[in-house]
Amino acid sequence: MQNAIQIHVNGQVQTCRCDATVADLLQDLEIRTERVAVELNLEILDRATFGQRQLKEGDRVEILSFIGGGSL
């Protein structure tokens, strides 16, 4: 793939377009943006900025959501 970059998403290597934003990534992964939190290189992103934050080679993205839990 031309103009593709490699990033890490939830610990896994993922390839995406070089001009992709966080919002694009979520769309590609079919993840609804409501009720997820996204961390980009340890910075927690404001949901409103997902469309502006462009990804670059080697970025570490964490996408989290709520699951069943009491205590652990």
Binding site: L29, E30, L64, S65, F66, I67, G68
Partner: peptide, 19 residues
């Protein structure tokens, strides 16, 4: 109700959301 915060499963998107 309490919930935990964990990584979304990005390889199997068929998994339903608790909420």
């Amino acid at each position: 109700v309490t919930v935990a915060v964990r990584r979304v499963n990005i390889t199997d998107r068929s998994k339903e959301n608790l909420l």
